[in-house]
Design a protein around this nucleic acid. Structure first.
Lengths: 171, 171
DNA sequence: GTCTATACCAGGATAGAC
DNA sequence: GTCTATCCTGGTATAGAC
């Protein structure tokens, strides 16, 4: 791993656990075993470092949204969407925790990452003749957020909860 | 309004909009038109100020949870719980936004405010003979969080979404 | 690409007068 | 209770050498 990557992943871990503002570049440098100056050489500013993390994370997250977008069976789309939080690998949890934190802290980061998924869900509900496909899709997003909160914040096992929700849709 | 209260409400507004860490005591002092020293006289530290805000807010929030705890009809308990986010008066929105932000930022603040409500909901579902009352109660909490997010963060009108959820329980 | 040294500012907090 | 003035630390960021 290059020092640049090293800085990026160290910063991600610290931002996720203590928050962006209360993590100092000093600390990132120490934990990553690099000089503080190097952070600024590579990323320009602390904010630049944060952006690099987001960009990297978004591209990773596409990798588990893409497969759902490719599905044809509407029931399968709904099912896989609900299972999404459970299917995110542990190594990506830090990134998602950071993103959820930022969402509340700095509205700029309210994520468009899920826009395409919402559209897909809307279509799925429409083809299943639900009365209000848009709202139903929004509700699935609420489930995703809720399950993510359970997993990321309370470190709970969301398996049962996921199953309960799937049952409600007879999936 | 005393200067002390003035500091408290000004800080609440700033913390809610920009986050705790990136709001300086300097700024609070300016916006509240008091000297910076006064903040520390009254609250000891910036952290102390935050605590005062939380304590004040928690006591307010009891005022809309209490009425639900007093209900006897289980269906009514569920209904009113789901309507909770919609029923929170606009003037309390800032406080809730702050609390949701802190929840992700500093786990200490993961709120026990709703513990009693969760118990009440569990009983309600049990008396309605639901298979898994605990999980069902947890799901209602997810609805509450989701609706709160819609209202507080996206400033959306959660009326339709609330109705959709109520329909699912035939309420 | 990387480190060392350092500038410079803003943060929280305190002292002392009124 | 309140203000003014001030301290000190630690934050981000830059310069210059290797």
């Amino acid at each position: 791993m290059s020092k640049k990557e090293n800085i990026l992943f160290t910063a991600l871990a610290l931002f996720a656990s203590k928050g962006y503002d209360s993590t100092s570049t000093r600390q990132i440098a120490v934990e990553a075993s690099v000089s503080e100056g190097l952070i600024f050489r590579h990323f320009g500013s602390k904010e630049g470092l944060l952006n690099a993390i987001i960009v990297h994370g978004i591209s990773i997250s596409q990798s588990y949204i893409q497969p759902i977008l490719a599905l044809n069976n509407p029931k399968e789309v709904i099912k896989r969407s609900i299972q999404l939080p459970l299917s995110v690998p542990g190594e990506d949890h830090e990134f998602w925790k950071l993103l959820y934190t930022l969402k509340w802290q700095r509205s700029e980061y309210e994520e468009g990452a899920f826009d395409s998924l919402r559209q897909k869900l809307t279509h799925a509900f429409r083809s299943l003749a639900y009365q209000n496909p848009e709202l139903e899709a929004q509700l699935i997003e609420i489930y995703i957020d809720g399950l993510a909160t359970e997993i990321l914040l309370r470190k709970g096992d969301a398996q049962e909860l996921t199953q309960l929700i799937l049952n409600k849709y007879e999936l």
